[in-house]
């Protein structure tokens, strides 16, 4: 009877289509079923659009989670018991007991805004009237990320819309190498988990630095009064930030560890001034 059951399971499981992607085959699925199916243990976790369906630390700390199903918009950096790293793309991947997930990346284009709200001047003493104190405080903290000065000491707070995506047009082994290098860098910094949030944090710091450099090239007193409007300043700062060597209107040049990993375009939405 046991043999009939095993043959029946193998028969049915062999039609599950995920054997084409990932490292899973019929025997592993059967093993997974025997280990977890009977215990009703939710051992397969999903990664969709660069997001876990569960808490990241639950996955990292509990090795009994045996498989990851990754959609075609995501990539996952892992490290096994022998400290060997790897990148998993779409498919169903079996994890060895000592394997931990380091980072999860979204391969699609993503957008974020750097700086404060573009509808309310952070230099005004009172916050936005229709917002809570906490929201106004968060807006001030966001303003501090992009706060910069012209060379003659005038404070500016730009608001920048950033679009980025992981460069994925190359062969996968090349992308894997770059993601592995970036994952190793993040691990060295003691940062794990959602790769997109980590990228946005590093990219945000990089853009803030570029904003500072661009603002420092401006001498406020030399600007015509009309050029001191936020629109003119936005255009001025934008033109100084985009990489002229790239030959694109909105693309910026990057530095390691993001160099070669991302394609980034920016748009200076507004520049707040006192």
């Amino acid at each position: 009877m046991l043999a009939i059951y095993a043959i029946s399971m193998l028969f049915w499981i062999s039609f599950i289509p995920f054997r084409y992607q990932g490292n899973t085959d019929t025997l592993q699925l059967l093993k997974h079923h025997i280990r977890h199916g009977f215990l009703r243990n939710d051992a397969i976790k999903r990664v969709d659009d660069g997001n876990f369906d569960a808490d990241y630390f639950a996955l990292r700390d509990k090795p009994q989670i045996s498989a990851l199903l990754i959609d075609n918009h995501s990539a996952v950096a892992i490290k096994d018991g022998a400290s060997k790293r790897g990148i998993f793309f779409d498919g169903l991947w079996q994890l060895k007991p000592q394997t931990s997930v380091l980072h999860v990346f979204d391969l699609q284009a993503r957008t974020f805004t750097l700086g404060p709200d573009s509808s309310h001047n952070p230099f005004t003493a009172s916050g936005h009237p229709s917002r809570s104190m906490r929201e106004n405080q968060a807006n001030l903290i966001a303003a501090d990320r992009t706060r910069c000065q012209t060379s003659d000491g005038v404070e500016l707070v730009p608001v920048v819309a950033v679009c980025y995506r992981l460069i994925s047009e190359e062969p996968r082994n090349k992308i894997s190498r770059r993601l592995l290098a970036f994952s190793a860098y993040l691990e060295g910094e003691g940062r794990f988990g959602d790769g997109s949030a980590l990228i946005e944090s590093i990219l945000g710091a990089h853009i803030a630095e570029k904003l500072g450099e661009a603002a420092h090239e401006i001498v406020w007193a030399e600007l015509e009064p009309q050029a001191q409007s936020h629109k003119q300043l936005s255009a001025l700062i934008h033109s100084r930030m985009v990489g002229k060597d790239i030959g694109m209107r909105n693309r910026i040049a990057l530095q390691p560890p993001l160099l070669g990993l991302l394609s980034v375009t920016i748009n200076v939405v507004k520049v707040w001034m006192p």
Binding site: M1, I4, S8, I16, H33
Partner: peptide
Amino acid sequence: MPIIIFTIARAQAADLLREI
């Protein structure tokens, strides 16, 4: 008996497929 076992295996494989 084998048919019942075969049907149970089908249900369990479907369950696994649903989980995945």
